[in-house]
Design a protein around this nucleic acid. Sequence first.
DNA 1: TGAAAATTAGTTACCTAGGTAACTATATAT
DNA 2: ATATATAGTTACCTAGGTAACTAATTTTCA
Lengths: 140, 140
Amino acid sequence: MEAFFHQYLQFSRTFTKKINEHIADLDLYQSQWSIVYYLQKNKTATLVEISNYFQVEKPTITRTVNRLEDRQLIEKVASADKRERRIQLTEKGLDVYDQASAVIDAFEKQLVEEIPKDDLEITFRTIQRLLFKINKEESV
Amino acid sequence: MEAFFHQYLQFSRTFTKKINEHIADLDLYQSQWSIVYYLQKNKTATLVEISNYFQVEKPTITRTVNRLEDRQLIEKVASADKRERRIQLTEKGLDVYDQASAVIDAFEKQLVEEIPKDDLEITFRTIQRLLFKINKEESV
DNA sequence: TGAAAATTAGTTACCTAGGTAACTATATAT
DNA sequence: ATATATAGTTACCTAGGTAACTAATTTTCA
């Protein structure tokens, strides 16, 4: 168990890299994909909502969203609160979602197909517990 | 299980962030730490050895090693092969290792202490299987 | 055997993604 | 009316990647 976290990060890097390779045709990156995915599920969102969901800091979200906007995959939605930047997928964004979704679903399915359901369940719950625990850590 | 990989990456980000916070006093980052750790275990190493071990590309290793060298935590070791850059920890590097090691060990131990050994074992083996599988993926 | 070809180690330049600190503008609370 | 909180941005740090390169070593084979 010595190398638990080492191995954990190893898979994380490799997974992200492979996802990036799989959607490179679409000129998309994993983190961009995750926002596209979120928007498809939630219709509209503010940057703070996205930031909270992924637990990624706001400046990072701002930048990635800007890239999606430059590529016209997302667009602004009117909002009562003038501070807010509420966004949604464009037609083009939805199209990219469909294409990326197919590729990524297949990739992920194939990745776990030989692993017993029970083991995946336990792994999922264990990571969930680790996440819960680490989020209770007082910030330094 | 829908959110398996989403949650996986979430913990990865948060874990790295927390490690960074814990060793910020030492002016160290997680990825720098991992190389310091490797060098303490293996005495000397070339950049390719480090790159292979972490499955991180050579340019990334070059840069991180340069930063460690700038801070005089590592130094060059003579090598027969003139292409190689073989390195080891300096006295200062060993000192930083000792300090970081204590902090990180405690942090990691506390993170897993409430999780049953069996669950950790299964999680470890499952990630190992995922890693094995993903590394068999033909490159795109 | 010795020149040419292929491989290996490392670097440079440049891309995206994570972070923090400090800021502006708007909305909310006092 | 003022103070505080919230949403987002800008500037700048480290870390991951790829592509293309140099220099040194190893392999090939005429």
